[in-house]
C-alpha cells in the first residue's frame, strides 16, 4: 500500500497599508523543493498588484522569489501555492553512533554556533550538558532534549512573536512551534550536536481526510547530525516527520528562512494577515 500523501497547499499573506506605499522590495521563501521524502509537482508564487518575479536559490538552498513594486499601492498580497507528494520518514530510535563520532566535525561547524534566536543562557547551557552526560550518544540525547522541551514548554499560539528567542520562551515555559524548535536547536548545539531549523507546512490531522480543504499552518521542526546522517524530528508534536509535513527551508534559525521579508517606503501597515489552506488529494 502506498503510504504517501499528495497535498495542495495555498499560503496567502496580505498587507493593507494606512494609505499608499510608494515602493516595496520583498523576498518570499515559500516554495518547497523536491528532496529525499517529498517531490514537488508544482510550486508558484503570485503577487497582487502584479510584479516582475525573480527566482534564485540562496546560500541555504531555499528557493527565493524576489519582487519589487514601483507603483504606489494600498495593499500587497502574496499567494504561494504548491502541489507536493510526500513519504513518511524512517522511524527515529535512540540507537546510533557515539559522542566520539561527532568530535572534530568541522564540516557542520555552522550548525554548532549560537544565533540570536537560539543562543542559550547559563541555565540552558548547563541543562544541555546534563542531557549530554546522561546519554551514550547524540541520537539518544537529542530525543531526550525534544522530550524535555515538549513536556516543559506548553504549546500556546499567540504567546510569542517571530522575534522571540529560545531563552525567553523557556523562561515563560510557553511558545509556538518556532520557539520549541529554536529551544531544541539551541540545546542540541549546546551539547555539540550540529542542528538545523526547518520551516515548512503541516496538515493539522495525522490521518487527514482526502479531498477536504482545511486550515493548515506554517510549521517548524528540527534536524540534527548524529555522526552518520541528518535526522528530522518534530519536537512540537513529539514525533518523527510524517507524510503531513512539507519542508520549505533549512537554516540555523528562523532568520535564515523567513517566509516573507522586505522593506517598503510608506505608511505603517494597518492590517496584515496570513492564511494557509491545505487539501489532501491522495
Amino acid at each position: 500500500m502506498n503510504q504517501g500523501w499528495r497535498m495542495r497547499i495555498t499560503h496567502r499573506t496580505w498587507f493593507q497599508y494606512d494609505g499608499k506605499a510608494a515602493t516595496s522590495y520583498n523576498e518570499a521563501r515559500m516554495s518547497p523543493r523536491s528532496e529525499g521524502r517529498q517531490s514537488v509537482l508544482d510550486a508558484r508564487v503570485e503577487i497582487q498588484p502584479a510584479a516582475w518575479l525573480y527566482k534564485y536559490e540562496d546560500y541555504w538552498g531555499s528557493v527565493v522569489t524576489a519582487f519589487d513594486l514601483q507603483e504606489a499601492h494600498e495593499s500587497l498580497t502574496v499567494v504561494a501555492s504548491a502541489l507536493v507528494e510526500t513519504m513518511p520518514s524512517a522511524p527515529v530510535t535512540p540507537d546510533g553512533p557515539s559522542w566520539n563520532d561527532l568530535e572534530n566535525e568541522d564540516r557542520w561547524h555552522e550548525y554548532l554556533l549560537p544565533t540570536p534566536r537560539t543562543a542559550l543562557d547559563e541555565e540552558l547551557t548547563a541543562l544541555a550538558l546534563e542531557i549530554k552526560g546522561a546519554h551514550d550518544g547524540p541520537q539518544a540525547a537529542a530525543l531526550a532534549a525534544c522530550e524535555l522541551v515538549q513536556s516543559e514548554v506548553e504549546y500556546q499560539p499567540g504567546s510569542t512573536g517571530v522575534q522571540t528567542d529560545a531563552v525567553h520562551a523557556w523562561r515563560q515555559r510557553s511558545g509556538v512551534c518556532q520557539d520549541i524548535s529554536h529551544l531544541v536547536v539551541g540545546l542540541l548545539r549546546g551539547m555539540g550536536t550540529p542542528a538545523k531549523y526547518v520551516s515548512g507546512y503541516m496538515h493539522p490531522h495525522p490521518d487527514g481526510p482526502v479531498g477536504e480543504d482545511v486550515a493548515g499552518q506554517s510549521h517548524a521542526w528540527v534536524e540534527w547530525w548524529s555522526g552518520t546522517g541528518w535526522t528530522g524530528y518534530d519536537p512540537t508534536n513529539g514525533a518523527p516527520i510524517q507524510p503531513r509535513h512539507v519542508a520549505v527551508g533549512r537554516g540555523r534559525e528562523y532568520g535564515d528562512v523567513p517566509p516573507l521579508k522586505g522593506v517598503y517606503s510608506g505608511p505603517p501597515s494597518a492590517n496584515q494577515g496570513v492564511e494557509v489552506r491545505i487539501t489532501r488529494l491522495r
Binding site: 534564485y56 536559490e57 540562496d58 546560500y59 568541522d106 564540516r107 561547524h109 555552522e110 554556533l113
Partner: peptide, 18 residues
Amino acid sequence: VPRRVVVTSAHFHREAAG
C-alpha cells in the same frame, strides 16, 4: 582553511553566495 574560520567571520556574507 578550517570551515569555522570562514563561518565565524563577521564579513562572510551568505547573501553574496551565488
